[in-house]
C-alpha cells in the first residue's frame, strides 16, 4: 500500500514490532521461553499465565484499513488495546506516527490518545449518565475544549451520523444501531488520524450492520483515516479491509489482501474461515487473466481490479474473451470464459 497523504503531511501510520502480551504472574519470564510454546491449558495450569498475543509485527500505512480477524479469544481485543496502552504490552514497541508509544511518558501518551487515536467499542461504551451530545463531546472535554465549542462540534458530528435533533437524549433511549452511531460520532468528534474499531458491529443485526459498514466505507472516502478494524465476521473483513490479518492463539497466521487470503489461505485454520466465500466475489480479474494471444475482438473491456463476479454477465453473453485494461486504458491481458467458470466452480484454472 502506498501513502495517500501528500508530501509533508505527518506520517500517521502504525508500526508494531515484536509485541507480546502475557497475562498472569511474572509475565516477562514467559516471553520467548519454551513455556510460551506449551498448549494454552497446560501453561495456565502450570504457571497461571495466558499468552494472549505473541510476537506481533504489523505496519499500517496512512489511509489504510487494516482488518484483524480471528475467533473469540484469539487476542484481538488485547492487540487493539495495546496500541494505545489501554493494556500494557508485556514486551515490544508500538509507533504511532513519529511517536514511540511504548516508550512515551505520561504526557505524550495522553496527547496520542487525545489527539491522534480514537476508539469505537464493541458494546458501544456510551456513558449512561450523559446526554448524547455530552457523550460525543467527551473526547473534547477531557482535552479541555470549552463547553459551547465542544457542544457545537458534538452536535455537528451527530448530524454527520444522522442523529441530529437527538442530542438531549440519553443512551438507553436509543436502539443498538443508533447507539453505535453515537459511538462512531464520539470517535470522530476529536478528528483523530487513526480510528480503532473493536468489533464495533458484532452486536447489531445484519441489516443495520450493513448500514454501518457502508457508513465506514463512506467515511474512508470522505475523510481518509487510518483504521484498524477488529471483526470475527469474514464478509465484513472482506468488504472493508485493504489488508486482512488472521489471528489465532495470539499470532498472525496470515496477513494479506482479501483476495490473497481467500485464494491462497496459509493453513487449515484460515482455509476453514474462507471456505464458504464465493471466490468470484473477492478475486479480481488479474487472477484469471492471460496474455493477449493475437486476438483483436473482445466481448467487452474492464479495468484491473474488477472482481470476477462483475464480468460474469459479459462472458455469459459472448464466446469472446474479455479485455482487461489498466488505469490509463492500456491493454494488459484478457480473460476467457472457461477460467471464469472454473473459478466460480471452485477449481483452479
Amino acid at each position: 500500500m502506498t501513502s495517500i497523504g501528500g508530501v509533508g503531511e505527518t506520517n500517521s501510520s502504525i508500526s508494531v514490532r515484536g509485541m507480546w502480551k502475557v497475562y498472569g504472574p511474572k509475565p516477562e519470564r514467559i516471553v520467548g521461553s519454551e513455556l510460551a510454546d506449551l498448549p494454552r491449558k497446560q501453561l495456565h495450569a502450570q504457571t497461571g499465565n495466558v499468552v494472549a498475543m505473541r510476537d506481533i509485527n504489523m505496519d499500517v500505512a496512512p489511509g489504510e484499513v487494516f482488518v484483524v480477524m480471528g475467533l473469540s479469544g484469539s487476542g484481538k481485543s488485547t492487540l487493539i488495546r495495546c496500541l494505545t496502552r489501554l493494556i500494557e504490552p508485556t514486551v515490544g514497541t508500538v509507533r504511532i506516527g513519529d511517536v514511540d508509544v511504548t516508550a512515551a511518558d505520561k504526557e505524550t501518551l495522553l496527547d496520542v490518545r487525545r489527539n491522534k487515536v480514537s476508539m469505537v467499542f464493541q458494546h458501544f461504551g456510551l456513558l449512561p449518565h450523559r446526554t448524547l451530545t455530552d457523550n460525543v463531546a467527551f473526547g473534547l472535554e477531557v482535552r479541555g475544549v470549552d463547553k459551547t465549542e465542544r457542544r457545537r462540534k458534538a452536535n455537528e458530528t451527530l448530524e454527520l451520523v444522522g442523529l441530529s435533533e437527538m442530542g438531549s437524549y440519553r443512551p438507553h433511549q436509543l436502539s443498538g444501531g443508533q447507539q453505535q452511531r453515537v459511538g462512531l460520532a464520539r470517535a470522530l468528534a476529536t478528528d483523530p488520524d487513526i480510528l480503532l474499531f473493536d468489533e464495533p458491529f458484532s452486536a447489531l443485526d445484519p441489516l443495520i450492520r450493513r448500514d454501518m459498514q457502508d457508513e465506514v466505507i463512506r467515511l474512508r472516502h470522505e475523510v481518509s483515516k487510518t483504521m484498524v478494524f477488529i471483526t470475527h465476521d469474514l464478509s465484513e473483513a472482506l468488504r472493508l479491509g485493504d489488508r486482512i490479518a488472521i489471528m489465532r492463539d495470539g499470532m498472525f497466521v496470515q496477513v494479506g489482501t482479501p483476495e490473497s487470503v481467500v485464494v491462497d489461505p496459509a493453513d487449515e485454520y484460515v482455509e476453514n474461515f474462507v471456505r464458504d466465500v464465493p471466490r468470484s466475489f473477492v478475486v479480481p480479474v488479474e487472477h484469471v487473466m492471460r496474455d493477449v494471444d493475437g486476438e483483436a475482438q473482445f466481448s467487452g473491456s474492464v479495468s484491473l481490479g474488477t472482481k470476477v463476479r462483475d464480468i460474469v454477465k459479459l462472458v455469459a453473453s459472448s464466446e469472446l474473451p474479455v479485455e482487461v485494461v489498466d488505469e490509463s486504458g492500456r491493454q494488459v491481458g484478457c480473460v476467457d470464459r472457461v477460467h471464469v467458470l472454473s473459478l466460480i466452480a471452485g477449481s483452479e484454472p
Partner: peptide, 17 residues
C-alpha cells in the same frame, strides 16, 4: 463496567478526570 473505564482512558483522561 470495564468498557466505561476504557472509554475514559482511550480518549486520554487523566486519573482524576
Amino acid at each position: 463496567p470495564v468498557v466505561s473505564t476504557e472509554v475514559g482512558m482511550s480518549f486520554g483522561s487523566t486519573g482524576p478526570q
